[in-house]
Design a protein around this nucleic acid. Structure first.
Length: 233
DNA sequence: GCGACAG
DNA sequence: ATCTTGTCGC
């Protein structure tokens, strides 16, 4: 895949909002929800996006962590001109170009990827994590801080690891996961080549002492330029 | 028609 | 997402 143009994922897109929704519906059919990745993963990755210049520049962070120890192995940042405004439901059209640029900077291909945002927990089942997975072919999991659509199927427990299905139009599209006591639950959903059950289990597997799982937390720190973030190479 | 709405 | 200080408490 050519990750330099920044438009690779949208070759069939006519540029319209209706066209974007149609493309999502078509790509959603290519999402695979069966586990299909090296398990246990040897190398995992985290992706997140931030902005500069009042939004004119999109900054994407990609980090690589050891799949066993969760130790940080690599961190990089890519910058691309922002090409679209934020439209609820069409986030991937705004942020994917930067994510592809960041992916191209990684020295190795991860076995499993965590993206900040929804997987299939989306109106047309193609949140940014699912879109990224289908286009790159990489196993992906979406970890969002709040839901876009869907309602909790039951009452979420207070203890660490408690989870409840997130449903939409009669089907489970993800989970509400209490990764840490007292904190608001995370919204976890499969993106591509990962099952519903494995999506939550892998997420909890990499949750340390913070609300976000390490891959996403590290990428978030780099993308948001927080002090203490991993030095970018 | 009204309200909601990942980042 | 981003703009921003202090403050309360598991």
């Amino acid at each position: 895949m050519d990750t330099t143009s920044g438009t690779t994922a949208f070759e069939d897109w006519d540029g319209s909002i209706a066209g974007a929704r149609a493309l999502q519906a078509a790509l959603a059919r290519k999402v695979r929800l069966e586990d299909d990745f090296a398990s246990p993963p040897r190398l995992i990755a985290g992706f997140d996006v931030g902005f500069e210049d009042g939004g004119e520049t999109t900054r994407a962070a990609a980090v690589l962590l050891d799949g066993d120890s969760a130790e940080l192995r690599h961190a990089c940042v890519a910058r691309v001109p922002t090409s679209m405004p934020y439209v609820p439901g069409l986030l991937s059209f705004r942020e994917l170009p930067a994510l592809f640029a960041a992916l191209a900077l990684l020295p190795e291909t991860p076995d499993l990827v965590f993206v900040d945002g929804q997987g299939i927990a989306h109106p047309r089942r193609l949140g940014i994590a699912a879109h990224f997975g289908v286009v790159t072919g990489l196993p992906c999991i979406g970890v969002a801080k709040k839901p876009l659509v869907g309602t909790a199927d039951g009452v979420l427990g207070d203890e660490r690891g408690a989870r409840v299905p997130l449903r939409h139009r009669g089907e489970q599209i993800g989970w509400l996961l209490r990764s840490k006591p007292i904190c608001l639950p995370l919204v976890v959903s499969p993106g591509h080549r990962v099952s519903m059950t494995t999506a939550v289990e892998m997420t909890m597997r990499y949750v340390g002492r913070y609300r976000l799982p390490e891959p996403t937390r590290q990428a978030d720190a780099v993308a948001s330029r927080r002090p203490g973030a991993a030095p970018v190479v």
